[in-house]
Protein backbone atom coordinates (compact mmCIF):
# COMPACT_ATOMS: atom_id res chain seq x y z
CA UNK A 1 0.00 0.00 0.00
CA UNK A 2 1.52 3.37 -0.91
CA UNK A 3 2.23 5.70 1.97
CA UNK A 4 -0.16 8.61 2.18
CA UNK A 5 0.24 11.71 4.28
CA UNK A 6 -2.39 10.27 6.65
CA UNK A 7 -0.65 6.91 7.08
CA UNK A 8 2.88 8.32 7.14
CA UNK A 9 4.25 7.59 10.58
CA UNK A 10 7.83 8.81 10.58
CA UNK A 11 10.09 7.03 12.99
CA UNK A 12 7.25 5.45 14.93
CA UNK A 13 7.44 1.87 16.09
CA UNK A 14 5.60 -1.12 14.71
CA UNK A 15 2.99 -2.83 16.83
CA UNK A 16 5.00 -5.55 18.60
CA UNK A 17 2.29 -6.34 21.15
CA UNK A 18 -0.87 -7.00 19.10
CA UNK A 19 -2.42 -8.75 22.11
CA UNK A 20 -2.78 -5.37 23.84
CA UNK A 21 -5.15 -2.81 22.28
CA UNK A 22 -3.90 0.57 21.14
CA UNK A 23 -6.37 2.21 23.52
CA UNK A 24 -4.89 0.35 26.46
CA UNK A 25 -1.36 1.32 25.44
CA UNK A 26 -2.47 4.92 25.09
CA UNK A 27 -4.16 4.83 28.49
CA UNK A 28 -0.90 3.70 30.11
CA UNK A 29 1.05 6.37 28.25
CA UNK A 30 -1.37 9.07 29.40
CA UNK A 31 -1.10 7.85 32.98
CA UNK A 32 2.64 8.54 32.79
CA UNK A 33 2.18 11.82 30.98
CA UNK A 34 -0.39 13.09 33.45
CA UNK A 35 1.86 12.51 36.45
CA UNK A 36 2.58 15.94 37.96
CA UNK A 37 6.33 15.16 37.83
CA UNK A 38 6.33 14.45 34.10
CA UNK A 39 6.73 18.06 33.03
CA UNK A 40 9.81 18.38 35.26
CA UNK A 41 11.40 15.33 33.66
CA UNK A 42 11.01 15.93 29.91
CA UNK A 43 11.54 19.12 27.93
CA UNK A 44 12.08 17.64 24.48
CA UNK A 45 15.20 15.88 23.22
CA UNK A 46 18.15 16.87 21.02
CA UNK A 47 18.98 13.21 20.18
CA UNK A 48 22.50 14.09 21.26
CA UNK A 49 23.05 10.78 23.06
CA UNK A 50 24.89 12.28 26.02
CA UNK A 51 22.59 10.31 28.30
CA UNK A 52 23.50 7.09 26.46
CA UNK A 53 27.21 7.71 26.70
CA UNK A 54 26.95 7.97 30.47
CA UNK A 55 24.39 5.21 31.02
CA UNK A 56 25.67 1.98 32.63
CA UNK A 57 22.69 -0.04 31.41
CA UNK A 58 23.23 1.06 27.81
CA UNK A 59 26.64 -0.64 27.96
CA UNK A 60 25.32 -4.04 28.94
CA UNK A 61 21.76 -4.19 27.65
CA UNK A 62 19.85 -3.35 24.50
CA UNK A 63 18.68 -0.21 26.28
CA UNK A 64 18.80 3.52 25.64
CA UNK A 65 17.65 6.48 27.74
CA UNK A 66 17.66 8.53 24.51
CA UNK A 67 15.10 6.22 22.97
CA UNK A 68 12.95 6.59 26.09
CA UNK A 69 13.10 10.39 26.00
CA UNK A 70 12.42 10.35 22.25
CA UNK A 71 9.51 7.93 22.44
CA UNK A 72 7.88 9.90 25.23
CA UNK A 73 8.42 13.25 23.49
CA UNK A 74 7.06 11.95 20.17
CA UNK A 75 4.19 10.25 21.97
CA UNK A 76 5.08 7.06 20.11
CA UNK A 77 2.49 4.90 21.87
CA UNK A 78 3.72 1.57 20.49
CA UNK A 79 7.34 2.26 21.38
CA UNK A 80 6.37 3.44 24.84
CA UNK A 81 4.54 0.17 25.34
CA UNK A 82 7.69 -1.77 24.34
CA UNK A 83 9.58 0.28 26.89
CA UNK A 84 7.09 -0.04 29.74
CA UNK A 85 6.74 -3.77 29.28
CA UNK A 86 10.45 -4.50 29.09
CA UNK A 87 13.19 -1.85 28.93
CA UNK A 88 12.44 -0.04 32.17
CA UNK A 89 13.75 -2.87 34.34
CA UNK A 90 17.21 -2.55 32.81
CA UNK A 91 17.72 0.96 34.19
CA UNK A 92 20.14 1.14 37.13
CA UNK A 93 18.51 4.34 38.48
CA UNK A 94 21.91 5.95 38.89
CA UNK A 95 20.71 9.24 37.36
CA UNK A 96 23.92 9.78 35.43
CA UNK A 97 21.62 10.79 32.59
CA UNK A 98 20.75 13.98 34.49
CA UNK A 99 23.76 15.24 32.57
CA UNK A 100 21.30 15.83 29.70
CA UNK A 101 21.92 19.29 28.21
CA UNK A 102 18.18 19.69 27.61
CA UNK A 103 17.46 19.32 31.33
CA UNK A 104 15.68 15.98 30.90
CA UNK A 105 15.62 13.27 33.49
CA UNK A 106 15.40 9.98 31.55
CA UNK A 107 15.98 7.98 34.76
CA UNK A 108 13.06 9.87 36.30
CA UNK A 109 10.90 8.98 33.28
CA UNK A 110 11.81 5.36 33.94
CA UNK A 111 10.67 5.75 37.55
CA UNK A 112 7.30 7.10 36.38
CA UNK A 113 6.96 4.34 33.78
CA UNK A 114 7.79 1.74 36.41
CA UNK A 115 5.21 3.16 38.80
CA UNK A 116 2.53 2.89 36.12
CA UNK A 117 3.67 -0.64 35.17
CA UNK A 118 3.44 -1.71 38.81
CA UNK A 119 0.14 0.06 39.52
CA UNK A 120 -1.44 -1.61 36.50
CA UNK A 121 -0.02 -5.01 37.33
CA UNK A 122 1.62 -5.63 33.93
CA UNK A 123 2.47 -9.31 33.62
CA UNK A 124 6.09 -8.59 32.56
CA UNK A 125 6.50 -6.47 35.69
CA UNK A 126 5.10 -9.21 37.91
CA UNK A 127 7.60 -11.63 36.36
CA UNK A 128 10.53 -9.28 36.91
CA UNK A 129 9.64 -8.63 40.53
CA UNK A 130 8.89 -12.22 41.46
CA UNK A 131 12.26 -13.00 43.03
CA UNK A 132 12.27 -9.66 44.75
CA UNK A 133 9.15 -10.04 46.98
CA UNK A 134 11.04 -10.95 50.12
CA UNK A 135 12.85 -7.62 49.95
CA UNK A 136 9.54 -5.75 49.66
CA UNK A 137 8.27 -7.74 52.64
CA UNK A 138 11.30 -6.66 54.71
CA UNK A 139 11.25 -2.99 53.80
CA UNK A 140 7.53 -2.53 54.36
CA UNK A 141 7.48 -4.37 57.66
CA UNK A 142 10.80 -3.32 59.17
CA UNK A 143 11.39 0.03 57.48
CA UNK A 144 14.80 -1.29 56.36
CA UNK A 145 15.60 -2.59 52.90
CA UNK A 146 18.23 -5.04 54.09
CA UNK A 147 19.21 -6.76 57.31
CA UNK A 148 22.13 -8.94 58.39
CA UNK A 149 20.02 -12.12 58.34
CA UNK A 150 19.51 -11.69 54.58
CA UNK A 151 23.22 -12.30 53.98
CA UNK A 152 22.95 -16.04 53.35
CA UNK A 153 25.08 -18.17 51.01
CA UNK A 154 22.05 -19.24 48.95
CA UNK A 155 21.12 -15.62 48.25
CA UNK A 156 24.64 -14.30 47.65
CA UNK A 157 26.68 -17.30 46.41
CA UNK A 158 28.83 -15.08 44.19
CA UNK A 159 30.07 -13.06 47.16
CA UNK A 160 32.45 -15.87 48.00
CA UNK A 161 33.37 -17.74 51.17
CA UNK A 162 32.98 -14.52 53.13
CA UNK A 163 29.18 -14.95 53.16
CA UNK A 164 29.54 -18.42 54.71
CA UNK A 165 31.90 -17.14 57.37
CA UNK A 166 29.59 -14.24 58.00
CA UNK A 167 26.39 -16.23 58.35
CA UNK A 168 28.07 -18.68 60.72
CA UNK A 169 29.22 -15.81 62.94
CA UNK A 170 26.36 -13.35 62.45
CA UNK A 171 24.81 -13.30 65.95
CA UNK A 172 28.13 -12.76 67.71
CA UNK A 173 29.50 -10.31 65.10
CA UNK A 174 26.33 -8.24 65.51
CA UNK A 175 26.92 -8.05 69.25
CA UNK A 176 30.45 -6.83 68.58
CA UNK A 177 29.36 -3.46 67.19
CA UNK A 178 29.70 -0.45 69.50
CA UNK A 179 26.70 1.48 68.09
CA UNK A 180 23.85 1.03 70.60
CA UNK A 181 21.07 0.95 67.99
CA UNK A 182 22.84 -1.76 65.97
CA UNK A 183 24.27 -4.00 68.65
CA UNK A 184 22.69 -7.45 68.61
CA UNK A 185 20.07 -6.62 65.94
CA UNK A 186 19.95 -9.26 63.18
CA UNK A 187 16.50 -9.05 61.58
CA UNK A 188 16.73 -5.33 60.76
CA UNK A 189 19.52 -2.85 60.16
CA UNK A 190 18.91 -1.11 63.51
CA UNK A 191 16.54 -1.13 66.46
CA UNK A 192 13.38 0.79 65.61
CA UNK A 193 10.63 1.87 68.03
CA UNK A 194 7.33 0.04 67.71
CA UNK A 195 5.52 3.38 67.47
CA UNK A 196 7.74 4.33 64.52
CA UNK A 197 6.81 1.15 62.68
CA UNK A 198 3.09 1.71 63.35
CA UNK A 199 3.46 5.18 61.82
CA UNK A 200 5.17 3.60 58.82
CA UNK A 201 2.28 1.12 58.39
CA UNK A 202 -0.15 4.05 58.57
CA UNK A 203 1.76 5.68 55.71
CA UNK A 204 1.56 2.51 53.58
CA UNK A 205 -2.20 2.26 54.03
CA UNK A 206 -3.01 5.98 53.78
CA UNK A 207 -1.02 6.64 50.60
CA UNK A 208 -2.43 3.69 48.68
CA UNK A 209 0.92 1.91 48.81
CA UNK A 210 -0.78 -1.27 50.03
CA UNK A 211 -3.08 -1.25 47.00
CA UNK A 212 0.02 -1.13 44.80
CA UNK A 213 1.38 -4.24 46.51
CA UNK A 214 -1.98 -5.98 46.05
CA UNK A 215 -1.86 -5.30 42.33
CA UNK A 216 1.62 -6.75 41.93
CA UNK A 217 1.52 -9.70 44.36
CA UNK A 218 -1.70 -10.62 46.13
CA UNK A 219 -0.05 -13.26 48.34
CA UNK A 220 2.51 -10.77 49.56
CA UNK A 221 -0.25 -8.24 50.17
CA UNK A 222 -2.19 -10.73 52.34
CA UNK A 223 0.89 -11.51 54.39
CA UNK A 224 1.77 -7.86 54.95
CA UNK A 225 -1.78 -6.63 55.55
CA UNK A 226 -2.42 -9.32 58.17
CA UNK A 227 0.62 -8.41 60.24
CA UNK A 228 0.24 -4.65 59.87
CA UNK A 229 -3.48 -4.55 60.59
CA UNK A 230 -3.04 -6.68 63.68
CA UNK A 231 -0.25 -4.43 64.93
CA UNK A 232 -2.23 -1.28 64.20
CA UNK A 233 -5.29 -2.64 66.00
CA UNK A 234 -3.19 -3.47 69.06
CA UNK A 235 -1.96 0.13 68.90
Amino acid sequence: MPTTIESWNPGKAENRHPDVTYDEKERLFLEVKNDPRYSDFLYGCYECGICVSTCPSARFYDYSPRVIAQAMAREDIERVYDIISEDIWNCAQCFSCLRCPRGNNPGGLVTLLREVAVKNGLQETKDVLQGYSRVIYKVMLKGNQVSPDMLQPDFFPDWGPWVKEFSANMPVWRKAIPVDTLRGVTDAAWRTDRKTLLELYTIWFETGNMDIIKEIDEGLYDLLADVMQEELEEG
Binding site: E115, V135, I136, G143, T196, I203
Partner: peptide, 27 residues
Protein backbone atom coordinates in the same frame (compact mmCIF):
# COMPACT_ATOMS: atom_id res chain seq x y z
CA UNK B 1 21.37 8.12 67.25
CA UNK B 2 17.57 7.71 67.10
CA UNK B 3 15.38 4.60 67.25
CA UNK B 4 12.46 6.72 65.98
CA UNK B 5 13.82 6.43 62.42
CA UNK B 6 12.98 4.34 59.39
CA UNK B 7 15.14 4.13 56.30
CA UNK B 8 14.07 6.40 53.43
CA UNK B 9 12.82 3.25 51.61
CA UNK B 10 14.35 4.79 48.48
CA UNK B 11 16.39 1.69 47.70
CA UNK B 12 13.15 -0.24 47.26
CA UNK B 13 11.57 2.59 45.29
CA UNK B 14 14.50 2.74 42.84
CA UNK B 15 14.54 -1.05 42.65
CA UNK B 16 10.88 -1.89 42.20
CA UNK B 17 8.73 1.30 42.11
CA UNK B 18 6.28 -0.48 44.42
CA UNK B 19 5.47 2.85 46.03
CA UNK B 20 4.34 6.31 44.99
CA UNK B 21 5.22 9.98 45.44
CA UNK B 22 2.95 10.46 48.48
CA UNK B 23 4.30 7.46 50.34
CA UNK B 24 7.91 8.42 49.66
CA UNK B 25 7.31 12.01 50.73
CA UNK B 26 5.46 10.87 53.85
CA UNK B 27 8.31 8.57 54.89
Amino acid sequence: DPTDQTSCTGWNYYASATSNASAQAAV
